[in-house]
Amino acid sequence: MRTRPIDMPTPPSRKKLLLGGLLLGGLLAGGWAAWPWLQPAPQHAVVLNTRQPIAEFKLDSTLGHPLSLSQLGEHYTLFYFGYTTCPDICPTTLADLSQAQKLLGEQAQKLQMVFVTVDPERDTVERLRDYLAYFGPGWIGLAGPPAVTANVASQFGVVYQKQPARGSATEYLIDHSSVIVLLDPQHRPLLLFPYGVSGEQIADDLAAAMR
């Protein structure tokens, strides 16, 4: 057998350490950069992912005190604009969102759901609280003066308008945008769910977005 003398193992040279460090750093950077690609993309929502956050606002809340956007903390926040005498779209959407919240399981702890009334003349905070109780415990209701409400809604791209409803017990209805907007913890619009997306579909996309 051929034998030869070899040196005792010596500590790796600085050059090797540097190379190893660079490689590890590169791997970490690559992993960080590639991580969003590895996430399943939302299938049913429109990706907004905008740079500008929603501007700060403060409205009366069902928590019993005025609430500002920043006080919602570092949750993902789902905003829906509607009103309590809304005959069809609002209760259907709220039921879908509550179902989505249940389907999310523990992940729902990262999520806060917020309902903003576009009918502040009739929807008091008490009325909002009673209404939202039908859809589970996870909701915060917000109401404010008409001008402030319009300003907040506009920031979310939401519009609404009174429509007289002759012969209706509610006197008037309100035509309104029926979109659901998810804000990330920095209050930047992240996803937009159009009307008609089911609770399961919303849950799937929320789970992917909040991972």
Binding site: T50, S154, Q155, P189
Partner: peptide, 10 residues
């Protein structure tokens, strides 16, 4: 870039 949401208006 996705700058921000355009305002809703009527």
């Amino acid at each position: 870039p996705r700058i921000g949401l355009a305002p809703g208006f009527l």
